[in-house]
Simulated assay, not measured.
Amino acid sequence: MIFAHRGAAGTHPENTMVAFIEAANVGADGIELDVQLTKDGEVVVIHDETVDRTTDGSGWVKDMTYRELRALNAAATWRGRYGHCPIPHLEEVLAWLAPTPLAVNIELKNSLIAYEKLEQKTIALVRRYGLEKRTILSSFNHNSMRLCRELAPDMETALLSIDPLHDPWTYVRVMKADGLHPHYRTVTAKWAAEARQRGVAVRPFTVNKRNAMKTMFSYGVDAIFTDYPQQAKQWKEETP
């Protein structure tokens, strides 16, 4: 599968509705997005813990209300190409996604800030739209993923990692996770094959270069995350 990382983030403002819509238009199998909580407890879609890099504002997401965040332009760095793109609420994305065939990977951004009830609120929204079977919950915060497993045993969970994990198969079993989302540079053919044998889904991130993408496809990984879903689809079709 091809998951559009933060939407079609290579060609559109990341984690915005225009990026998600573009991902659907070019034939991605799913979208990936990041969630955090506002000061007033709303689940919003944004990657960084601050708004400085991706918007025309400044400050921490946790210190701003939903209304304050919505006033910011998440396409500010694109020099007017996409006009004003507000930071989406997770519900807005899921309501749009529900009638499509897309899967969604929701990454909980709670490693730096322990957002209280982020897991519960995210799961509740997924259930509201009946997307339990099309949703993967992931995080670098593996304690959070264990909590999600307890709260929603019917939803898939995956553990994100930058560095190779020691004895990943035992770890996945102990954490009761369904998949691993490793940095693509840590994935080998042998490792991917062993994951398949053990029934562990492997979805490397963030794969943007042609050779790396073709290598991942040749390894038979379950999915990749890419900023360029249209290009990825073309390269996938070229791979024997």
Rank of each mutant, 00 (worst) to 15 (best):
K62Y: 12
V18S: 03
V207D: 08
D154I: 13
P168K: 03
Y228F: 15
A223S: 15
W78G: 00
E68P: 05
V174P: 00
D63M: 08
M64F: 07
P168R: 04
R149G: 15
H47V: 08
A74P: 03
V35E: 02
H12Q: 03
E92Q: 14
M145G: 02
R198H: 12
I123L: 09
P13R: 06
E119M: 10
F217A: 01
E116N: 06
L159K: 02
A8C: 12
T135E: 04
I46R: 00
N141Q: 05
T215Y: 07
L112S: 10
D227T: 01
Q36M: 14
E49W: 14
A95E: 14
H183Q: 07
T135I: 02
A201H: 04
L131M: 15
G27R: 09
E107Q: 12
T54H: 10
S139C: 03
M155H: 12
H89L: 14
G27K: 00
A223E: 14
H89W: 11
A103S: 06
G83Q: 09
E14K: 02
T54C: 13
I136V: 11
Y129S: 04
H181D: 04
E49R: 11
N73A: 11
T38G: 02
I123S: 05
E119L: 06
T100C: 07
N15H: 10
